[in-house]
Simulated assay, not measured.
Amino acid sequence: MGEFCLKKKFYASLVAVSMALVPTLALSQTTVNMPRNRYEVQRDVQIGQQYSTEIEKVFPVLNDRISNDYVQDVGARLVANIPVRFRQPQFRYNFKVVNASDINAFALPGGPMYVNRGMIEAARNEGEMAGVMAHEISHVALRHATAQATKQGSWQNQLGTIGLILGGAILGGQAGAQAGAIAATAWQTKYSREYETQADILGAQIMAAAGYDPRDLANMFQTIAAQGGGRAPEWLSSHPDPGNRFQRINQEAARLRVSPEPIKITREFQSVPASLQSKRGQS
């Protein structure tokens, strides 16, 4: 009997030690659920392919191997850390730099993503740029475009939103595209708060898993505000209070296993600005 009690105490101690070694912070991260969606996954892919072709006809996609390779590498690192339950084998994530100075980035259903030169130049470290990319990747992974179309009852509404952006670009070049994007964002604001919150939270989780500090995504809000005179760019304008998002992302970061030495200033991050600088006169 004494031997049994001794073994029982030993195993109890072993379990206690094992539980102490489990990263409890990682277990407390916020649960993100896939929104209801009545569209097949292939529909996201088709829409993304269709509109990426149109976008690249009117947006000044940068022909610069150094910067494009860089955003592809950062994007690939983030995509590799999308939680398994949100991975879609049909999606083809692809990242390109747009030769535009405004601080902006956007992604299309199925994976095509465009990062403005101005976004890269505004980032104080790689984590800030990666944060914006992780946010946009989260919109794609959660299939927010077709989920929003499901809410609206018609994919035509979502097509109309993209059409506003492209229509502005066609009519007025880069400035027209910005005006179109603003109109589209304002038009769909009432649908977007829930999805923006989801993209912030999942984006933070992807960043931490990829070796970045999610607080850099939160800090990017302040970087944008400082450089933009307090005016939020298009990708933030659908939410009325960036301060709330700053706080929410930092709260999520506290629940995650963040590397003690997160990716910040890399050699590539330091070398890309010079390459971008040489392209300024071409926009």
Rank of each mutant, 00 (worst) to 15 (best):
L217H: 05
L164I: 00
Q46L: 12
A147W: 07
D44G: 03
V74Y: 03
A107P: 04
I201Y: 05
G172Y: 04
G229P: 12
E128W: 10
K9N: 06
F95E: 00
R117H: 12
P242K: 03
F221C: 03
H135C: 11
R65A: 15
G131L: 10
A100V: 15
R117P: 02
G110P: 04
L108R: 02
A254H: 02
V115C: 08
A204H: 05
E126I: 10
Y191M: 09
R87G: 02
I103H: 04
H239S: 15
N244E: 15
F106I: 04
T223R: 07
G131E: 10
I263V: 15
G243L: 05
A130L: 11
L14P: 00
E268W: 01
S154T: 14
W187V: 02
I137A: 09
Q270P: 00
K190H: 13
D64I: 02
Q29S: 10
G228L: 06
E136Y: 09
V61T: 14
S101P: 08
M220T: 06
P35V: 07
D102V: 13
G160W: 03
Y70F: 14
K57Y: 03
R193D: 14
Q148P: 00
D69I: 02
W155Y: 13
G230D: 07
W187K: 15
S101Q: 13
R117F: 09
H135V: 11
I47S: 01
G203C: 05
Q49E: 14
K151I: 12
Q247M: 09
Q247N: 13
A225W: 03
P112S: 07
I55K: 01
A123K: 07
M119G: 09
